[in-house]
Nucleic acid binder design. Sequence first.
DNA 1: CTTCTAACA
DNA 2: TGTTAGCA
Length: 95
Amino acid sequence: MTDPAPSTLGVYGITVAAELAGLGEQTLRLYERRGLLTPDRTSGGTRRYSDSDIAVLLRVAELLAEGHNLVGARRVIELEAINSDLRIRIAELTA
DNA sequence: CTTCTAACA
DNA sequence: TGTTAGCA
């Protein structure tokens, strides 16, 4: 029922991440500026997107298609993350 | 690759 | 409001 959480290790450059998410590079940078994402940075300052970052990007695209704006999408993703953590805690306490 | 700015729908 | 193109 619960999908395994994607790796949070930054591995993709912005070009690859944008391609995987089906979005433009500028769009990815905008999402970061709006606080929807915080990809890792190399010492040189280039972004490194993880699988979980890609998952967030895909989720943002879904939410926007449903009529959310970027602020609303950020809220939903934040709440979903909290909800996920709580489900894990419930599972631990139930075990 | 980066940030920033301006224009478009 | 969100996306995109062009510049430095």
